[in-house]
Nucleic acid binder design. Structure first.
Lengths: 236, 236, 236, 236
DNA sequence: TATGAATGAGCGTTCATTCAT
DNA sequence: GATGAATGAACGCTCATTCAT
């Protein structure tokens, strides 16, 4: 409220600022927002508590500042990952894999983003949230692209499709965070991609085949989702 | 001293207990777990703060006790809703619609379940969570049923499919809770069902048709998803 | 701001409330508002810090509640003191003496009232201040009475006269509080009364006398201010 | 390191020092000692916070240094104002008017002096306080002069009279600072002077007059206090 | 059973002040 | 001489929880 001095956001010591953010990310991920203490964050960042207030207005502001850098990194990497990939469906598959991979390799960030930030209404009015929207808009673009190129059905609601996309991945990741299952989050990338692709793709004749005048399920899909079956140990 | 909870005998008890739970649900939904105070819950339930501790061990225990009744109600209603519905795909559609309908008509409960309980690790060790599993197992059963009857592809991972199912609905509902969009949560029930059904159903020849020796997209799907187009006002 | 529970002002334990007020008065008097700590007040009152917040909203509110009881006591005693006194001028003398006596016998209260409350703008919007106004209005009444009975000049501004009255006494008392001089605050009651009475009283022929056709100062005043001379040790 | 204050040599120094003092005066007046922050003073003075510590030992020291310059200015002006005025009573009138005028035209200074410095015990051990004593001694001198010339009663305690003088003026000014009443502080200069002069002056036969062998109140006083009546809008 | 009253334990936040540059 | 950066040291305040009645 009262930001005395020239507190907040000096670039001078980006290193110290980053150290605080990193520490905060870890502590928030581990303890949750309210059980996390400034004291612990400060200790982990090797600064005095008061120093945190030189860079961030308050605890909540610190929380909201926490995902920014990683989010940008994710955006850059995503572009890199998608570069050269042809076709919306392939992009979707790549996106899903990358999304899960990135979550997996940034567990604290995932935890903060999904468990703390997402249920927080105030987060919506935050610069960090605006950044996040770039990410989700990318998904929409891919769907649109697919509709234009014909690979994605024109009769689906792409906003609902985006819900499908995000909801599925976030649900999978949430389970991973909460229950440590599966150990390897990307393990289900293919199965997940199969379903999502199925959901949106334009049906093609390759999907059906004729045996003795009967139409059977094509086996093509199987080739991409080998290893997926009901034998996975699922606890719920 | 500590087993008041077990004395189900007296009606007066149950009434007061329910009043507390209802008040708690509302306050938790409105304020979140930590900003909710025992004091406010007590006031809303018209009991003294200490009385709450006669019925619940502590604040967290109260939180975890909060969804139980509604959850049972949901299970009963679900059975009622699915009764007489033929075919896994139709059950899925019905389930989706009912899920959204129930969320919509129990906002506080939805809010507590999705925003507070789900991100809470401790909730997993809770009786209330076991109840919730019955719910999600129902989904698995339907998928299995579909695979047996042939309407659902046998080559999909039904656990991942359940993620798809739950994740999509919860994501949609979360948006509704956080941003009040869409006003009517069931508005997208059909579009959502279309996508999920597409994702899991066994492709059938009806989905393709031949014109001049070429296979085209069947129009059947369209019949069920009338009203679905990209004109929905979506803000993100 | 947020007064959770039924905090503030339960009469149930007026004893505890009084203990807190008394402790607060002493600590405030000794340390000033900001150097006084809730912790010290709690210790002196033999209650937990949190208990203070059961009775008072916050530190400032506690400060403002501090003088009330004594102020009422002063009002009652004043009425008692003035009862039976005839004539506005005699009432003024009595009032002055009592005012100084009461300050002297309630040092902490004096200190808080003059040193902390008076310079605090917010105090003006306080119930305690309204009580104080009864006190100062009493002075006005006496001046009016004197003007009606003829003992006080009709050509003076009684509001300014009240400033004279209050300002003089408060200045004297402030010096006493700050510098412990004079040891006995009532020592100058007579001299002060003489001056204030002189300032407002209707001049009377007794005040002048004729010697050899010349008018001299009457000696009557002297009788009441015996002992007043310039030999007092004054440091400023 | 710690004696920068003594290096009066460089002009640049004095200029910066004055800027700090001026800023401090305003901030202290507006916020009070404790709510004033070094940060705000620094900002207002356009210097860095640390710079303030080059010129002043600490916050309290800065506060005590704050009134000095104005106080000297007041002393000089007072001498100027009193120059050529004949008779103690006239000097008293002039002094009162000038005192109020100076307060009025230096509101921040008044505020700091009366509201912050006066209730502060430590201020008494301060060079600035010694300067202030010159001011109050001047009052004593005038009283003595009046007693010698016969215009002021020899039977009054001049120290008490000084209390009357200072207390009245300070009380009036305090009200003005706290409640902005009256708008023009010098409005009551005459009325105040009348009362104070009445209080101390030697009664003279002109004050009484004879009608039908009876002694009546003289009207002389009225001539000097035109405009004084009970119609002033006073809120308390 | 119900509760009014009391409190222990803790945390975010503020600033005056220091010091290396 | 000037200052940006860092921090130590405090303190008000909140609430979940307990317990005597």
């Amino acid at each position: 409220m009262k930001n005395h001095r020239n507190r907040k956001g000096r670039k001078e010591n980006a290193r110290k600022r980053d150290a605080i953010l990193e520490a905060a990310l870890e502590v928030f991920a581990q303890k949750g927002f309210l059980d996390a203490t400034i004291s612990e964050i400060a200790k982990k960042a090797s600064v005095a508590e008061a120093t945190i207030y030189e860079y961030f207005e308050n605890k909540e502001n610190l929380l909201f500042s926490t995902p920014g850098k990683k989010q940008k990194e994710a955006l850059d990497l995503l572009a890199f990952q998608l570069a050269g990939v042809k076709g919306a469906l392939n992009k979707i598959r790549k996106f899903i894999w990358f999304y899960l991979w990135f979550f997996q390799n940034n567990r604290s960030w995932s935890s903060v983003a999904l468990m703390i930030l997402r249920p927080n209404k105030k987060f919506l009015n935050t610069p960090a949230y605006q950044l996040l929207r770039l990410w989700t808009q990318e998904i929409l673009e891919i769907f649109k692209e697919g509709q234009e190129e014909g690979s994605i059905r024109k009769d689906i609601n792409i906003f609902v499709a985006r819900n499908l996309f995000l909801g599925t991945i976030e649900h999978l990741t949430s389970r991973w965070i909460l229950m440590d299952k599966p150990k390897d989050l990307t393990e289900f990338a293919n199965d997940t991609a199969d379903l999502i692709v199925n959901a949106v793709k334009t049906p093609s004749p390759q999907d059906v085949y004729f045996i003795n005048s009967t139409i059977h399920l094509g086996e093509k899909g199987r080739e991409m989702s080998a290893g997926s079956d009901r034998n996975h140990s699922e606890s719920s």
